[in-house]
Design a protein around this nucleic acid. Structure first.
Lengths: 146, 146
DNA sequence: ATACAAATGCAAATGATTTGCAATAACATA
DNA sequence: TATGTTATTGCAAATCATTTGCATTTGTAT
């Protein structure tokens, strides 16, 4: 059972949010929508090199999308920032491979988890959201001897 | 029921790991052990300013501690890196306040969560650990009108 | 007391991300 | 279709956190 990747109508999405349909922004959304995993800025630059945008332009686009809640940034370790489309349908969590660093997003929900956390907390009274990340070894790396 | 903070024997800990007992490293471990929340580098610099260490020295000490698994770094959002002592006794998760950014660590465990994640995953076969972070509003900020 | 390795301070390098500004491209509308 | 407004872009420079090289100092074992 493979994950279905529905390609997004990037132009429509840009329009809905009042953005102009520029080559970079269109391609950026397409690349993100076609990726089964969250992507680093470097990867995005490589995958959109056809439109040849400046790094600053890339960051501005990503930040605009984050502001508009089209895209979200996730941080899996101290330094690595990855971007992915916001999935409105299901709430996603992540698994990172400790060997090749691939990150997979998985729809996943633990019932009452926010309430359980509140119950343990001394300082908090209200929780809006949570992030859950797993670290493991992907099938491919398990196969590779190292 | 307040959280008990057992002050650590910093010198013993350094010795166990073959580190030299320098003023910065001793104080750093003491500060971390006395904090109920993970701390940013800036905060650590402020709290250890009595020993007046260079930022590079601070980073080298933190990285050495991470390498030795005495300390762990957590990243709650795109940019913010926080450090805390590794809690061997209980596995901790975090709640971040969306208003004042305070981070609280809470002992917390969801049964079978790793297995549940594996079951949802297409790419992963083995999970070693997970991190769970909540975003909410702390009691103090809930009281403050803004 | 001596000697060796680890830890430090300082300055400079790095690397990711942001910003100012002038030029350009997209869009609305006339 | 032409035109004006505004968002978007490229470029260069600024920022900011973190790392590194190197000479010096400090801790520790002998």
């Amino acid at each position: 059972m493979k994950k279905q990747l529905q390609p997004i109508d990037a132009e429509a999405l840009l329009q809905e949010h009042g953005f102009k349909k520029t080559p970079l922004r269109i391609m950026l959304l397409e690349v993100l929508s076609l990726s089964p995993i969250p992507l680093a800025v470097k990867t995005l630059q490589r995958k959109t090199k056809k439109v040849g945008a400046d790094p600053s332009t890339m960051y501005r686009a990503l930040n605009a999308f984050i502001e508009a809640e089209i895209v979200q940034a996730i941080t899996v370790d101290k330094t690595k920032v990855l971007y992915e489309l916001v999935q409105t349908k299901n709430h996603m969590h992540h698994i990172v491979c400790d060997s090749c660093n691939t990150v997979e997003s998985i729809p996943f929900c633990v019932k009452n988890i926010d309430q359980q956390a509140i119950n343990m907390s001394r300082l908090f009274k209200k929780i809006y959201s949570h992030q859950l990340a797993f670290v493991g070894t992907c099938r491919k790396c398990l196969r590779t001897v190292r």
